[in-house]
Deep mutational scan, measured.
Amino acid sequence: TGIVNVSSSLNVRSSASTSSKVIGSLSGNTKVTIVGEEGAFYKIEYKGSHGYVAAEYI
C-alpha cells in the first residue's frame, strides 16, 4: 500500500512507460494497493484492473 504524493493529480497509465496511454488519474493523498514494480513504475490495483504510476510519486 502506498499514498499518492502529489499536489494536483497523478496519471495512471496502461503500461510502465511515460509514452503509454493515460487511463485515468489519482488525486494527492489517495491510498493505492501496489501489486508489482517495473522499473520506475509501480503496478497498482485500479478500477477492478491494473494500472501503472510513477514510483517517485508514491
Rank of each mutant, 00 (worst) to 15 (best):
F41P: 00
I3M: 09
G51C: 04
K47Y: 09
I34T: 00
V22L: 07
S25A: 11
N11R: 13
G36W: 06
G2W: 08
A16E: 02
L10K: 02
S14P: 03
E56G: 07
L10E: 03
K43C: 09
E38I: 09
E37C: 15
S14M: 13
S25K: 14
S17D: 12
I58H: 01
T30N: 05
Y57H: 11
L10D: 02
S49M: 13
S19A: 10
I44A: 00
F41T: 02
F41G: 01
T1W: 15
A54I: 14
G51Q: 01
T33Y: 10
S27I: 11
F41A: 02
G39C: 07
G39E: 06
Y46H: 04
A16K: 03
L10W: 02
A40V: 09
H50D: 06
S20N: 02
L26F: 04
G51M: 02
V4H: 04
N11V: 15
G24R: 01
K43N: 03
Y57V: 04
Y52L: 02
G48N: 08
E56C: 12
Y57W: 09
E45F: 08
K31C: 14
K31Y: 12
Y52Q: 00
S27V: 12
N11H: 14
V12N: 01
S9A: 11
K47R: 09
T33K: 12
I58L: 06
G39P: 02
S25I: 15
I34R: 00
V22N: 04
S7R: 12
Y42W: 05
S9P: 11
V6K: 12
V53L: 03
Y42K: 05
Y52H: 01
L10T: 09
E38M: 08
K21G: 08
I3L: 10
T18R: 11
A16H: 05
T30L: 06
S19P: 05
K21S: 11
K21H: 10
N29L: 11
S7T: 12
Y46G: 00
I3Q: 06
N29K: 11
K47T: 05
V6H: 11
N29V: 06
S7M: 11
I34M: 03
I23V: 07
V12E: 01
A16S: 07
V32W: 02
I44W: 00
L10F: 03
S20F: 06
A55I: 15
K47L: 13
G28A: 14
Y52C: 02
I3A: 05
H50G: 04
I34E: 00
G51H: 01
A40N: 12
E56M: 11
S49Y: 09
S25E: 11
N5K: 12
G24A: 04
S7W: 07
G51A: 09
S7K: 14
V53K: 00
R13G: 04
A40D: 14
V12K: 00
V53F: 02
S8Q: 12
S14V: 12
G51S: 02
L10R: 03
F41N: 02
R13A: 04
L10Q: 05
S9C: 15
V53M: 02
V4F: 05
S17P: 01
S17W: 04
R13M: 15
A40I: 10
T33P: 03
G2A: 08
S27N: 11
Y42R: 03
H50I: 14
A40Y: 09
S9L: 10
V6C: 15
S17H: 09
S49D: 09
E45V: 12
S27K: 14
S17G: 07
R13D: 02
E38S: 08
T18S: 14
S49W: 07
E38L: 07
A55L: 08
Y57P: 02
I44Q: 01
N5W: 08
E38P: 01
I44N: 01
I23N: 01
R13P: 01
V12W: 01
I23C: 05
G36I: 04
G36V: 04
K47H: 10
N29R: 11
L26A: 02
G36L: 05
T33N: 11
I34H: 00
T1D: 08
K31R: 14
N11K: 14
S19D: 13
I44F: 01
K43G: 02
E37L: 15
G48W: 05
E45H: 07
G36T: 05
N29T: 07
G28V: 10
E37A: 13
V4Y: 04
I3V: 12
Y46C: 04
S7H: 12
R13N: 09
A16L: 04
V32H: 01
S20I: 02
S25L: 13
E38V: 10
Y42T: 05
T30R: 05
T18F: 14
S20V: 04
Y57N: 08
N11Y: 10
S15R: 11
G28P: 15
L26S: 01
I3R: 10
K47N: 14
F41L: 02
G51R: 01
V4L: 05
I3F: 13
L26Q: 02
S25T: 15
S14I: 14
A16N: 04
G39Y: 05
G48S: 07
V35Q: 05
E56T: 07
V53E: 00
S19I: 09
I23S: 01
E38T: 07
Y52I: 00
G48F: 05
G2V: 08
A16V: 05
V53G: 01
V6F: 08
V35H: 05
V4D: 03
S20R: 04
H50S: 07
N5I: 13
S15W: 07
S14K: 12
E56L: 10
Y46V: 02
A16G: 06
E45D: 08
E45L: 13
G2Q: 05
A55Q: 14
G51W: 03
T18V: 13
I34Y: 02
T33G: 03
T1F: 14
H50W: 15
A55S: 13
S17F: 05
G51N: 01
T30F: 06
S25M: 14
L26Y: 02
F41V: 02
N5Y: 07
G24S: 02
S15P: 01
Y42L: 12
G48Y: 05
R13Y: 15
V53R: 00
E45A: 08
T18Q: 12
T1K: 09
Y57G: 09
V35S: 04
Y42G: 03
V4I: 08
S49V: 11
I3W: 14
I3D: 04
